[in-house]
């Protein structure tokens, strides 16, 4: 099963930084794992935790949220609130015995194409180690 496993990762990327960082990684022909499906959001704080959960409960193997570095949020403080919300969501998952490691939050600026490639590869590797989301092939939810 391990060798067959092709993870599907949803990447919620902030328009002002991480999305541009991902773009730069592409323009520089850096190696970015194909497992990541990028979705552009206007700010990391745009993410209602429900969106992250929706992805995970519909079968995504991992969710990567990436926003501007602390202090650099286009809207001032959005990423600080996003960090609290996602931290809270991780606590909720952990308390229920769910795999909180399938959720990751990273700061990537528009000029950090290399960092985006590294973060994405690293997360892809961690998800491969975790294996498929157990919610797959489970009819109940």
């Amino acid at each position: 099963m391990g060798e067959m496993f092709q993870p599907r990762i949803v990447g919620f990327l902030c328009n002002w930084c991480s999305y541009a960082g991902a773009d730069l990684a592409g323009a520089n022909r850096l190696n970015v794992p194909s497992s990541i499906t990028p979705i552009k959001v206007m700010c990391s704080s745009r993410l209602d935790p429900t969106l992250v959960l929706t992805a995970l409960l519909r079968g995504a193997d991992g969710v990567l949220v990436a926003g501007c570095h602390p202090g650099d949020c286009h809207y001032g403080e959005g990423n600080y609130y996003a960090r609290r919300r996602l931290y809270l969501l991780k606590e909720v998952l952990a308390a229920l015995g769910l795999e909180e490691d399938r959720l990751s939050l990273e700061w990537i600026s528009a000029s950090e194409g290399k960092r985006f490639a590294d973060v994405a590869s690293d997360f892809d590797r961690r998800i491969r180690e975790l294996g498929p989301n157990p919610i797959r092939k489970r009819g109940q939810t």
Binding site: P49, T50, L53, T54, L57, R85, L88, L89, V92, L93, L96, T141
Partner: peptide
């Protein structure tokens, strides 16, 4: 399940 975990969130 989304409803319940989401509400918790």
């Amino acid at each position: 399940v989304l409803f319940h975990i989401g509400r918790m969130g």
